[in-house]
C-alpha cells in the first residue's frame, strides 16, 4: 500500500535519539575500560611440608632414636632464609652457608650451587623446602623462588615442587 504513495511521504528515521544512546553506551565502555596489567606468574606445586631426616655433620648412624625412617625426605633440598628487616640476611643450602655481600651475590651463589647439586644424572633431589623467616618481604622471597624454578632436574623437568616452612624470628642463626 505505502509503495504507491509519492516520495514526499517517505518515512525518515530520527537518528539523533539512537546517536544519543550510542554515545551513552560508548561513554560507559570508555569509563569502565581497564587494560589488562602486564603480569606474569610462577607456577608452583606446593605440597604440605613433610618431616625431613636431616643428618647433622657430626651425627653417628643410629644415634637418633626418633628417626624411624632415615630415607624419608632424602629427595628434599632445604634452603633456609633468615630475615630481620625484610631482606635476606643469611642464606643456607642444607647446612652450608651461602656467602655474598648482598642479596644479588647470595642469589647468584645459590643458583650456582643448586646447578651443581641438581645437574648430575644420579641426583635424587626432586623438591625444595624453603625455610623462611617470618619477616622476609615477598619480593625477596620471589627472587629466591625465581632462582629455584630456573633449575632443571635430571629428568629434564623444571623444579616447581616447593614447600614452605615459617621460621620463628632468628631461628636460622641458631645451631
Amino acid at each position: 500500500m505505502s509503495r504507491r504513495r509519492g516520495k514526499s511521504s517517505e518515512v525518515k528515521l530520527n537518528l539523533a535519539a539512537m546517536l544519543d544512546m550510542a554515545f551513552q553506551l560508548l561513554a560507559f565502555f570508555v569509563l569502565t575500560f581497564k587494560p589488562d596489567p602486564a603480569e606474569g606468574q610462577i607456577l608452583l606445586r606446593l605440597p604440605p611440608p613433610e618431616a625431613v631426616a636431616m643428618v647433622k655433620t657430626n651425627q653417628q648412624a643410629g644415634q637418633d632414636a626418633n628417626n624411624t625412617n632415615p630415607v624419608e625426605g632424602i629427595e628434599s633440598l632445604i634452603i633456609t632464609i633468615d630475615s630481620r628487616n625484610g631482606s635476606i640476611d643469611t642464606l643456607k643450602l642444607g647446612d652450608g652457608m651461602i656467602g655474598g655481600a648482598g642479596s644479588q651475590e647470595k642469589l647468584g651463589a645459590l643458583s650456582a650451587r643448586l646447578g651443581v647439586i641438581l645437574e648430575p644424572k644420579d641426583s635424587t633431589f626432586k623438591q625444595v623446602i624453603l625455610q623462611v623467616g617470618s619477616k622476609l618481604r615477598y619480593d625477596e622471597l620471589m627472587r629466591v623462588i625465581d632462582v629455584c624454578t630456573r633449575q632443571t632436574l635430571p629428568t629434564g623437568e623444571k623444579l616447581t615442587k616447593l614447600s614452605f616452612v615459617e621460621l620463628p624470628d632468628g631461628a636460622a642463626g641458631a645451631p
Partner: peptide, 24 residues
C-alpha cells in the same frame, strides 16, 4: 611479609589446594 603469605598458603593447603601461581 612472608608470615602473611604463609598463612594464606597453609590455609589453602589444609583444604586440599596444591596448585599455586604467584603473581609478579
Amino acid at each position: 611479609a612472608f608470615k602473611d603469605l604463609y598463612r594464606v598458603i597453609k590455609a589453602c593447603q589444609d583444604r586440599g589446594f596444591r596448585k599455586f601461581a604467584l603473581k609478579a
